[in-house]
Each structure stands twice: as C-alpha cells, then as structure tokens.
C-alpha cells in the first residue's frame, strides 16, 4: 500500500485539506487532486519552469516539491492571478497586448515567475527581466514579447500603485 499523509494548505487563498501519497509532487497534487490544470508540466525534472508556482510568496518549481512539503504553506497558482472572473491581472493583460504567448504552454510559469519578480523589484531593467525568466523555457516567442510584456506590466502596476 502506498504511504499517505493528511495535509492542509492554502491554495489561492482557500484552505484545502486532503490526503496525499507521500511521493506525490506538488505539481501533480495541484493538477490531479485539485483539478488546477493551469500549472503545466513540461520536463518534470526542474529544467523548463512551466510548473512554477508561488510557495509562501516565493517562486518554486512544483515538480521539485512533494505535496507533503506544502503542508502548512500558502500555494499560489496561475488560477489565482486574475482579480475576478471577468478581469485579467495586469501581467496577463500585458502578455495579451505584447504577444507574450503563442501556444501558451510556458505562460503560467512565466506569469508566476514574473509576479514574484515585480513584487520584489517593481521597476526591473530589461536585463533583470531576462535573468528572472532564464529558468523558464519558451519555444514559440523568442522571448521578446514576454520581456516587452513584463516591462509594460511593471509600468502598469507602478501606475496602479502610484
């Protein structure tokens, strides 16, 4: 019998309690147990960044964490990014406006990585944006649209905050 453990964590602001196999990764917990399929699985060994989520506000590769390690933590996924069902987060709006995505596979990981970057550094340089997303692979855009979107989103967020 597979070993299981009962865990409780805050997922996108909602408390979730569930029993998980101890070998289950956080990425599989989000997708399979909670149905949050916005977190994508690319390489499943920590190279592509598609599964990036925030754990206690810090970006992490969800394929390199066990679900049991999230016990007591706050996990934020792309599903929690938009403020309302009929509105997008400024990062999402900027991605749409700047063609920051084509197929969309890397997008959730990009968005969550950039959400952390802009929280830490509201006015990053282009180099800082490129360095921040160096752990997220995109095979469509050539990154330029993503970088443009990140810089524009940073400006929009500064304006909203100002």
């Amino acid at each position: 019998m597979a070993e299981t453990r009962k865990i409780t964590c805050m997922v996108n602001g909602t408390e979730r309690s569930l029993e998980v196999e101890t070998r289950l990764t956080l990425a599989d917990m989000l997708r399979r147990e909670l149905g949050l399929t916005g977190t994508h699985m690319g390489c499943e060994h920590g190279v592509c960044g598609a599964c990036t989520v925030l754990v206690d506000g810090r970006s992490a590769r969800a394929c390199l964490m066990l679900a049991v390690q999230a016990d007591g933590a706050a996990v934020d996924t792309v599903e929690g990014l938009a403020p309302r069902e009929d509105a997008l987060h400024p990062l999402q709006e900027a991605f749409r406006d700047h063609h920051g995505l084509q197929c969309g596979f890397c997008t959730p990981g990009m968005l969550m990585t950039l959400k952390e970057l802009l929280a830490d550094n509201p006015d990053p340089s282009e180099d800082e944006v490129r360095m921040a997303i160096s752990g997220n692979l995109c095979r469509c855009t050539g990154y330029q649209g993503i970088v443009d979107a990140a810089l524009d989103a940073a400006a929009r967020l500064r304006e909203d905050a100002g």
């Binding site: 960044g49 990036t52 810090r58 970006s59 992490a60 590769r61 990585t113 970057l117 752990g135």
Partner: peptide, 9 residues
C-alpha cells in the same frame, strides 16, 4: 547558482 525558482528552494 541556478535560477530564481531553484535558489528559493
């Protein structure tokens, strides 16, 4: 050392 996401962990 790695990327932002890997240094966090």
């Amino acid at each position: 050392v790695g990327h932002r996401q890997t240094r966090n962990r």
